[in-house]
Design a protein around this nucleic acid. Structure first.
Lengths: 145, 145
DNA sequence: ATAGGTGCAAATGGTTTGCGAAAAC
DNA sequence: GTTTTCGCAAACCATTTGCACCTAT
């Protein structure tokens, strides 16, 4: 699976730091942000720095090993690219992130590419709202509008 | 259309600054980021400050007058909420943003809500890739992966 | 020895905020 | 006269970068 052996930079896990970061990403039960990844990495190797985490995340992204997602606001989240493409539901109340997948996504992308003569390299799709628990308990937390 | 007359804050265009910002948003041919909105507002009223632009954008957002979008990275873009829901295609090469709409989006949202017992208040969907012009000219700019 | 990787601290850049002054009602 | 808004400058925060040192080859 590893490509571009010829490029200037080393293959993904070229150093112990990268290997560590890759392992953590692979074992992560969910997507992580840079800080959380840094936190987990620090537990195993206190010498690692946040800058390295960012640089490595950048590298993994370029290599297509991970996906970067902007679920809402400022910070980005990352997860390993796995077989099944999926999207996310973000609960605005409890913050929970739920995965989902639907064949409609593929259809939609295909249709859009065809109609607009566009070549998509990346799909960013998520729904903000309230999960089953939160939409009941709360009597409309804060005017979801 | 204006709701929540009872809330503490005034209805959207309560001051000349807000009125100005609202007008600019309405007349904008495309989505703007805070800086661009500030630029345009400054042309008409040099006394306005960036902070006011941000605070007003925040207000409009809460009131449901505008949509906030994160098309890719750091900064956010805003546009008036209009009748036709639509999504965006972002060309990674020329930066152009193309609107598109498809009934599949509605179907998808409906399906996801039903299957996950989720209540969506907001859909964020955009495709990154290459527009018709760019995907031809360039022989794959930088490994779109 | 040499290119690439890393830590550290400083720099960036978009967005937010505290505060006292000004405007709205 | 209160309440809300505003300008200003400082604060925030995620991310990026310059630079000198380190490390694997």
């Amino acid at each position: 699976m590893r490509r571009n052996r010829s490029r200037n930079r080393r293959i993904a896990p070229g150093t112990s730091h990268r290997r560590l970061l890759l392992t953590i990403m692979q074992e992560a039960e969910k997507h992580l942000d840079a800080k959380e990844l840094y936190r987990r990495a620090s537990d195993k190797d206190a010498s690692i720095s946040l800058a390295t985490v960012y640089r490595t995340l950048q590298l993994f992204k370029e290599q297509g090993v991970i996906n970067e997602m902007h679920l809402g606001q400022a910070r980005c989240y990352y997860e390993m690219k796995r077989s099944g493409e999926h999207q996310h539901l973000v609960c605005e109340s409890c913050g929970q992130v739920i995965d989902f997948e639907s064949p409609l996504v593929g259809k939609l992308v295909a249709e859009v590419q065809r109609k607009n003569d566009f070549c998509a390299t990346n799909v960013e799709l998520y729904l903000l709202g309230y999960c089953s628990k939160c939409k009941e308990g709360k009597s409309k937390p804060e005017r979801p509008k």
